[in-house]
């Protein structure tokens, strides 16, 4: 059962975050927030394949939630319960989606975006291709860092000066990225991409019975705050 989230198709995986986002708009009181969060915790304990990665994601979300708790308390009339509710709401809004994003395989997602959602085929194919540049960008970034350090322009302790450093690095990375883009499009066109009007896909984008059930569960989880609120919690 714990492999369910890994086997579900990527659209279903992402739907968990979408439903939690939509459901979170019904959270307006502390009990509802706690019930919704509780539902996700239970689902997570039952269905997630591991606990380490989700906990890291949740940690990041919690840090973000703390700033929301504080700002809501300060700017919303110093109401502690309201502030805590707002914070928990953010955990429900963002947490499930940020955990699930870690399980999405971008290549499979591209197949589903094109074949299930029928988004423009060439844009999706180009996007799937561009994702392969990620590792190359990382390697280029390392080289750019080395050059700056050995030429006397490494990062300094002054955070403001580092803004310039980050901008200079980002610019150099973009130049490298776009330089590769023209070679890539020449290579893609030579393989028939310019005229790929009726493109087919080598891999199918299936919807299994498991996918359908998982989608229902994701939707139900999203509905928990609505149900709780209607039930008067």
């Amino acid at each position: 059962m714990r492999s369910v989230v890994l086997r579900a198709n990527p659209l279903v995986q992402l739907s968990v975050g979408l439903f939690s986002l939509l459901g979170s708009f019904w959270i307006r009181s502390l009990p509802v927030a706690l019930i919704a969060l509780g539902a996700y915790v239970v689902a997570g304990l039952l269905l997630l394949p591991g606990w380490r990665y989700p906990l890291v994601c949740l940690g990041f979300t919690a840090i973000a939630a703390v700033t929301i708790v504080y700002s809501t308390w300060r700017l919303g009339g110093h109401d502690v319960e309201e502030a805590v509710t707002a914070g928990l709401r953010i955990v429900v809004l963002a947490g499930p989606g940020s955990v699930m994003a870690g399980y999405v395989d971008p290549s499979r997602l591209a197949d589903h975006l094109a074949q299930t959602l029928h988004l423009p085929a060439r844009l999706i194919a180009a996007f799937a291709g561009a994702l392969q540049k990620f590792t190359g960008f990382g390697l280029a970034w390392q080289q750019l860092e080395r050059v700056r350090r050995v030429r006397g322009f490494g990062p300094s302790r002054n955070p403001l000066a580092n803004g310039g450093y980050a901008a200079n690095m980002s610019f150099a990375l973009l130049v490298q990225a776009l330089r590769g883009a023209s070679a890539t499009s020449i290579a893609m066109d030579a393989r028939g991409f310019a005229t790929a009007h009726d493109r087919t896909w080598a891999e199918p984008a299936p919807w299994t019975r498991l996918d359908r059930w998982a989608l229902v569960v994701a939707a139900l989880l999203g509905c928990v705050p609505i149900i709780a609120r209607v039930a008067g919690a």
């Binding site: 291709g129 590769g180 890539t184 290579a187 893609m188 790929a196 080598a202």
Partner: peptide, 22 residues
């Protein structure tokens, strides 16, 4: 590296035939 358009070998080679609508 400029010519690679997919994560795995099979899919990368399939790019042209996909474009041709096979």
């Amino acid at each position: 590296a400029d010519a690679i358009v997919a994560e795995r070998m099979g899919r990368d080679v399939a790019f042209g035939p996909e474009n041709a609508g096979m």
